[in-house]
Design a protein around this nucleic acid. Structure first.
Lengths: 253, 253
DNA sequence: TAAACTCCTTGACCCAGATCAACCCTTGGA
DNA sequence: TCCAAGGGTTGATCTGGGTCAAGGAGTTTA
């Protein structure tokens, strides 16, 4: 019985074989050939984190880089006086850390239980030089993140509180839909992986404003809520309108 | 005489030899060896733009990528209703365009006269595959830009108008100082390359607020102005305090 | 079974920054 | 020499979202 529990735990920690990995085709290793994967397999190790746990403190020595295998984490910047701004959301397949950099620049906090696939930094950097497939994929992912960051600058700089909330919900919904690949039609249903406070940190708002605007969107029928976290979106087009990015009628990226 | 004028113009357009290029050691080509540079030289061409000219319209077909050789441009996103947010400032050595992407995602507008070193996209993409030095450098530059974008998210999301202005001036000053490598001591002097409106677009403010806060910083002796554009910073540490990023006492990145 | 948390909601009030509007200064045609 | 246009300043007023404060609802500790 104890053994079973332990083996379950290990199974949870370590997909063991990269071939079975749920993020195999989206993470930094996506482009790797079988032989390259084998090399990576030799230097990888898994780490588990619990919801609420801080994975990395800004300023800390970073002796590893990693991919998020499952769960969600946030990337946060803090000012001396305590003001904070979330600058990224880390989802399965996202990459953490920067090759060539010694110290972490942001706090990384797990918002759900999380599994990360880690590589010691030095060996990984060595491998990057020899394995262009890794660097290629990392460039692609970094360019995507840069686009996302710039998109978010528009949200932070120019959108109203209501538009901000709608934008955040739309982004989470879209990504969720892309992952689950659930049927294109019908209302989307998913759980918000963030507390109201985390949403506020992401949007540059206070948690009170977040709460009010979520209530308002619910009252206006743009979303509906089951409990505090479970969201249903009856009409994605409507939500996108509220977010201020009309254009495409709800395409799933 | 006419010939002279033309040759001057050409000289301005084209450093001709990459060895003489002012951005040789900072642009995408920074890591290239002599032979790689020769290949790049064969596919490069120069383009001039005047202050105010739009270099690229968002949504346009992009059949080239480029490095900024001299001058300054802005990267801007626009919403349907006309709200705009600047998402990047393009300075000498910065890279424009994304390998593998057909269409521009942002408007690029020259704010000063500008020279760009362009490469047709397809040949450049081919070269990237064969020349890891280019991809390596591009990855590095993209990671830097991502950091800058995230830094800016903090500015947009959490700083007050006064802090925003101070942050912008500090960034421009720092970069200017790094370029000019002028003596570390003594007050910094430089020209703001942006109109009040452009500053507002960058900071997510209105131009009136920008004007007021610039005046306030001047009145408080944080900066002094000669005309509308020429700025003197008597004490960089003080400026950084006003920007809300105390920490380092005015280090020039 | 309550006490102590954490997370969330709602109300009352206030203020930083937006909006609207008038005006200044410089530059460059005609 | 004037006038038109682009950039900048400044004042008066309004308002979205922040701040402060009270309380609800669910969940863990004891």
């Amino acid at each position: 019985m104890a053994n079973l529990a332990i083996s379950e735990k290990i199974a949870h920690c370590a997909p063991v074989d990269c071939g079975d990995c749920p993020i195999r085709h989206r993470a930094v290793c996506a482009r790797c050939e079988a032989d390259e994967l084998e090399l990576l397999e030799q230097i990888k190790y898994y780490r588990n984190f619990e919801a609420g746990q801080t994975v990395i403190w800004s300023g800390d020595q970073m002796d590893f880089v990693a991919s998020v295998v499952s769960g969600i984490a946030t990337l946060t910047q803090t000012m001396e006086d305590g003001r904070t701004q979330m600058v990224g959301l880390l989802l399965p397949s996202d990459f953490v850390g920067r090759p060539g950099r010694e110290c972490a620049t942001y706090d990384v906090v797990a918002t759900t239980d999380m599994v990360m696939c880690c590589f010691r930094r030095k060996p990984f950097e060595q491998m990057m030089i020899r394995t262009p497939h890794i660097a290629q994929r990392l460039l692609e992912m970094t360019l995507d993140e840069l686009d996302a960051a710039r998109e978010w600058m528009l949200v932070l700089g120019r959108k109203t509180a209501r538009e901000k909330i709608a934008s955040l919900i739309a982004i989470i919904a879209r990504r969720d839909a892309a992952l689950a690949m659930q049927g294109m039609r019908g209302p989307l249903v998913f759980d918000l992986p963030l507390t109201r406070e985390a949403m506020a940190d992401y949007l540059g708002l206070t948690l009170e404003t977040v709460s009010r605007q979520v209530s308002a969107l619910k009252k206006d029928g743009v979303i509906s809520l089951e409990g505090k976290r479970r969201v249903t979106i009856p009409d994605m087009g409507r939500l996108l309108e509220e977010a201020g990015d009309d254009s495409d009628g709800g395409m799933l990226a």
